[in-house]
């Protein structure tokens, strides 16, 4: 029961990633693409946490946290670059 629901959740997350990547390719403006990357990173944090649950490894949560820090920095750095702040 619970596993089936988790599988369904995985399918939904996969579709979300497909949508975000489509936006990343179609873009139209650079800000759209960066926003898509931002969404992808948040989804990735959830996915790493889910993987930690599936593999039953507590320490993978550290990976999610470090990934969150780095991706936040990446988006802020890109934004600062775009507004000619660097």
């Amino acid at each position: 029961m619970a596993d089936t629901i988790l599988l369904l959740a995985g399918v939904l997350i996969f579709l979300a990633i497909v949508f975000a990547v489509t936006r990343l390719i179609l873009g139209r403006t650079i800000v759209d693409r960066v926003a898509a990357v931002d969404l992808l990173t948040v989804i990735s944090i959830s996915m790493i946490a889910l993987y930690a649950h599936i593999a039953d490894r507590f320490i993978y949560l550290d990976v999610a946290l470090v990934y969150g820090v780095l991706s936040f920095l990446a988006v802020v750095a890109t934004a600062r670059y775009l507004e000619r702040g660097l």
């Binding site: 629901i5 988790l6 959740a9 939904l12 979300a16 497909v18 949508f19 959830s46």
Partner: peptide
């Protein structure tokens, strides 16, 4: 079961975020 249902709702919100990213008309709304 409760946990997996919460995960499913969360995944549904991710799905909506992706769909909004695709359907919204301009960068700000996306």
């Amino acid at each position: 079961v409760a946990g997996s249902i919460l995960v499913l709702i969360g995944a549904f919100f991710h799905f909506s975020a992706g769909l909004g990213m695709l359907r919204m008309p301009d960068a700000f709304t996306r």
